[in-house]
Design a protein around this nucleic acid. Sequence first.
DNA 1: CTGTTAGCGCTTTCAA
DNA 2: TTGAAAGCGCTAACAG
Lengths: 364, 364
Amino acid sequence: MAAERDRSVAPPTISEVAAEAGVGRASAARTLGGYGYVSPELRERVLSAAEKLGYRANALARSMSTGVSHTLGLIVADIGNPFFAGVTRGISDFSRQRGFDTIVLSTHEDLEEEKAAVGVLIDKRVDGMIIASAAVERDDVAHIQDAMTRGIPVVLVDRAVEHLALDSVVIDNREASRRAVNHLIEHGHRRIGFIWGPPMKKPATTRRALTAAAARSLWTDGERLRGYLDALDDAGLPFDADLVMTGPKTEQNATVAVSRMLALDDRVTALFCTENDALTGSLRAVRESGFSYPADVSLIGFDDSSWAAVMEPPLTMIAQPMLDLGARAAETLLSEIEGASPSRTMHTLEARFVERASVAKRSR
Amino acid sequence: MAAERDRSVAPPTISEVAAEAGVGRASAARTLGGYGYVSPELRERVLSAAEKLGYRANALARSMSTGVSHTLGLIVADIGNPFFAGVTRGISDFSRQRGFDTIVLSTHEDLEEEKAAVGVLIDKRVDGMIIASAAVERDDVAHIQDAMTRGIPVVLVDRAVEHLALDSVVIDNREASRRAVNHLIEHGHRRIGFIWGPPMKKPATTRRALTAAAARSLWTDGERLRGYLDALDDAGLPFDADLVMTGPKTEQNATVAVSRMLALDDRVTALFCTENDALTGSLRAVRESGFSYPADVSLIGFDDSSWAAVMEPPLTMIAQPMLDLGARAAETLLSEIEGASPSRTMHTLEARFVERASVAKRSR
DNA sequence: CTGTTAGCGCTTTCAA
DNA sequence: TTGAAAGCGCTAACAG
């Protein structure tokens, strides 16, 4: 029997509406649920009875019998991060329009929290989930496979996961990165700092160690690093481990790392920052070291924002289509929910390279 | 009978677990649901049967019988906005810890969408909702009252609504604004632009028209404008309608409005921007007009971010405690859900005034 | 076209 | 301590 309920008056049920209208429950259900045939007469009576009682369908009960919740789950590292907030907005707008709502869970980039989040969504019987997963290794993906096994459609957003044959919606991070770094090279830069790379216990000393670490990092981190390396290789430029930040990804660490790169005998003359905090941290280091951009050091950042455009000089940035990433992920998920079989492909959206004024010819 | 379901294997139910364990359903339910007494023996059998079948409780069914969904609803204008994203993060972190998940709905600052959103949340039987409402007039709040009438706890966040006796969690916008403007006045400024005020069809020409418009605007907008006026009055400074932007709240309009203020014979020497886009729009206008800050014009903005700190010179800002606003709203809501009667008060959190270097003594 | 009825998977009396 | 059975509000066969 129902318990803890009635924090107030129990909400009217379809039976009460039927009684009020003097019709059978099924007829009331049919008109209110919008299915089956009902004569205009009864229909009218039911509608006004519902109106009168302030009837609202209990979506929970409906889901119980239909097996469909019209609710999506979204799992991201941090909903407070503007990038994920943008993606969320894209998902939310798209899915709401199709009658789906979204439960949003933040995992703080912690795999255990992510596992728990998937469990919660399974329990709540979401119709599908979109995940920007923190999973990397093969052993990290069991929770996602569990959801799949249970027949819950899953699509990945922002980060692909190697060991998972799933649809994912991403940008070509490697190419975006390669292009940015190449842009720097074309401006004569040969000492280009990369902020930030995969977090490592101790700084990498060899390219080999670094790429190995990248393989154990978030897909996005790895791709961006590979793009950096690609550009170097394309230009025949030597790799220097001192120019790649590998510490924990915080703004402050970026400042420290960049300060060091700026103090090198053969100092860095350009910086490629793969995240917003990396950029602001770098900017701070540049200033504190007594340099200015783009005269002394050129800069390119990731994830454009109106701030980047009003910096003086304005910043050259890689702009990810956040809303579109979300919308596309939602679209893909919804079509799988509606029965389409997953194409298990990577949907790659275009990132824009927004050239402004933070890159100058090397003058040194 | 259940329909559309089984997109795959139907998930195991408590009955199946009971059968597998060779016990009655109730015993299985008791151990799995964590209530009532079960002998250690049976308990063990049930647990391993559940494990074996991969049982996960169906939260929907549970909600059906308990009347509690352990789900909160959050309604904001735009989840993609960094401010709301931060608030959401605060809510999400706090409530998740207490076993509640959050359905997030964006209304695009549209009252109709907000009404629909409330309806959706009622239907999904959320245990409570947090709303940053677009409602202003008495006629705008029926949907929220409807939720209240149905016994669903509601707390307001960021924006209080005059006609609603509800708990709300906000900052003292008026005081924060007054303080910022006063800071400008103390630095000798007498011509201070306010970006942006309440949107009006045609520019206000009198103070009276402006305050009237403010009364018909979002609470935050009104409060911030009142704070501006307070500071002027405190200092005995005259009000000038030309210094208050009243157009649609877009970055571009801010640029246009500020450009105009800068072109006045008795031009503006300081700007107070009440939102991020207002600030970036203003910055652009300052630059395009051939001025620089803080030498020619001083600036103060709302909603601090790491960007503001790395601008050159760094920007003086009012920092709202976004996470705390969210956490506090969640805390208040949860206690009401747990039975506390709403205190119907405004919970005012402290905003910090972060003084950096975008305000200088008036030099003109 | 309309009403009766049997579930959906869980919780919770109530007896045993 | 345990099990049987009713009920949460809805959908969907199935008769009529």
